[in-house]
């Protein structure tokens, strides 16, 4: 018999690990949505500074926002925000366990109430803005 050894073999994760499985990929997409949201926020902040800088600067910026490329970006950012929110709300029941009279409230109701709240807040904003 050979010599007594223990030499465990360590594997490393490839840089492309998130491409190896659908769930990992979707997770990565969810994480990446934050990039869109960050850029969107930068644009929004610039908009505010332009408002402060005067009418001309503001209108020039509005024109910029109206270019097809920027509009396309906004559509993408909206999609990203929706994707993030929906996946997030669907996960909400995992963290939140609510019991009513000894019974666990079903996941669908918890997720559903999140959606309802979301719609209500959106409607409220819509009403305030318009």
């Amino acid at each position: 018999m050979g010599e007594a050894v223990s030499r465990p073999y360590r594997r490393t994760m490839p840089a492309t690990w998130w491409l190896t499985n659908r769930a990992y990929f979707l997770f990565m997409v969810r994480e990446l949505t934050s990039v869109f949201i960050a850029i969107y926020l930068v644009l929004l902040l610039v908009l505010i500074s332009k408002v402060a800088a005067g009418r001309e600067a503001y209108e020039a910026y509005l024109t910029f926002l109206g270019t097809p490329a920027v509009l396309a970006f906004h559509v993408l950012a909206l999609a990203a925000a929706l994707y993030h929110s929906i996946t997030w709300f669907n996960l909400a029941p995992k963290g939140l366990v609510v019991r009513v009279r000894e019974r666990r409230v079903p996941d669908a109701i918890i997720a559903g109430s999140n959606y309802l709240a979301w719609i209500a807040v959106s409607a409220l904003l819509w009403w305030v803005v318009l």
Partner: peptide, 26 residues
């Protein structure tokens, strides 16, 4: 934990570890 959620999918006895972590965070 960044909530990948695959632990829960993999668990053969439905422990839902991802859920347990989320609850611990709350």
């Amino acid at each position: 934990c960044t909530l990948v959620g695959e632990c829960t999918t993999a668990c053969p006895v439905h422990v839902d570890p991802a859920g347990s972590i989320q609850r611990a965070k709350v």
